[in-house]
Nucleic acid binder design. Structure first.
Lengths: 222, 222
DNA sequence: CGAAATCTTGACCGATCTCAACTTACGTGG
DNA sequence: CCACGTAAGTTGAGATCGGTCAAGATTTCG
């Protein structure tokens, strides 16, 4: 078990309130795995019994809808985890997970995790809190796609990026136009056009590919 | 504490694996409340520290998007619960809950619930399973709204109604056109039109307002 | 039985998707 | 370090799905 794994686990909100002894206990059950860019960590329909925690790299989580179109759900950074859905229900994945670059993950099996949960119930509360956040985000996103125009969705997304980038007026999009389009429920062409419009209206300034400066946040949000 | 409350609690998946003694313990902390049709159980932005379990009636859970449009998230039947989001995170509701008819709910406070979770960790696993289901549904719905045409969404919805109504070819929609439209991210007019089209194509037959007979499930799903 | 809400149908318009051409950025190997 | 090939992004034109507004039909419920 490398030091990186431990550093990884300690950074996970679910575990970082535990004392060293319990951490060691968890560490001892963890496996690690490495994925190259583009490799699939798991795919929909596949059996699963593990929780994956990203220790290095990025993972794209997406779904294929009934008609085969892709919907990007979220992007995992180090410290984020996935696989939960399969852990507490059918044990079949509903989504796909794909490494976006060289990525290391820590893996905890369902059995080990459930044992920890029963032994240290505070972990369960942490996971519940995390699930609540996910559910909130998912419902918010669903409501936006269902009720807002593309331009508004993009504006709201940019605003959220700003919140997360600590006050700076300049944000760096964490993904390509194609992924952004998939996340926002539109097409890359429309994303391009709408960003160009927002720029023409003076709300933003496109610096380079993924760098955008917010010039008028209030105007952006109408 | 009325018998109905106990019957209610026992029916909730989260609790129904518990033995009688623990059930009594939970029962002793529960309050009940009654709501008339149209009354608001809670609203977005409101402080919250309780889990609500429906014992009689129906509750509409919906969000208002940034632009003020309504998105129906789900409808609670007896045995279903809500309020979780506020329980494990900010403690502020993100959604609205409105009684659709005369409705009774059982209420457990955050403190009591968390104590139970720590004392009987198996409850936490049940809630985690329930959350997983919600998250899955929410993500699936988000993906559909983002990637499928209205007609497809309606068809998929009808198909799901069939699954839930046990093999019968005749389904009864659990909500009005307006709510269905809100749930599917469209308008009542479009729902009417698409249902009429599906009928013209011979896939379904509209019996009366909410009763629909499925004539060709495979055709419906293309 | 009648008022009010719900639902349906029609006409029109606009946002966004599709397809296609072109430009720019990026990574690889020489 | 540059050149090239490929992927990513942009822009345009046209088509269409679905939303809006409005009128009429139907159902619901007191």
């Amino acid at each position: 078990m490398g030091l990186r794994s431990k550093a990884c686990i300690m950074r996970v909100p679910i575990f970082n309130h535990l004392d060293d002894e319990k951490l060691e206990e968890i560490m001892s059950t963890i496996k690690t795995a490495h994925f190259e860019k583009g490799e699939i960590v798991y795919r929909a329909g596949q059996q699963s019994d593990s929780l994956y925690i990203v220790s290095k790299g990025k993972i794209r989580i997406y779904r294929l809808s009934e008609s085969g179109r892709e919907q990007l759900l979220r992007i995992l950074k180090p410290g984020d985890f996935t696989g939960e859905l399969a852990l507490f229900r059918h044990s079949v994945h509903e989504s796909f997970a794909e490494a976006m670059e060289e990525t290391d993950v820590c893996i905890i099996t369902r059995n080990d995790l459930q044992n920890f949960l029963l032994k240290y119930p505070t972990i369960a509360l942490q996971i519940l809190a995390e699930f609540s956040n996910r559910l909130d985000e998912s419902e918010r996103q669903a409501a936006r796609v269902a009720t807002e125009r593309v331009e508004t969705r993009i504006a709201l997304y940019l605003a959220e990026c700003m919140d997360n980038s600590g006050g700076s007026m300049e944000i760096t999009l964490p993904m390509s136009r194609k992924d952004l389009a998939s996340y926002l429920g539109t097409t890359p062409e429309t994303v391009s056009r709408k960003l160009a419009e927002l720029e023409a209206q003076g709300y933003i300034q496109q610096i380079s590919g993924r760098k955008i400066r917010i010039l008028d946040l209030d105007g952006l949000l109408e």
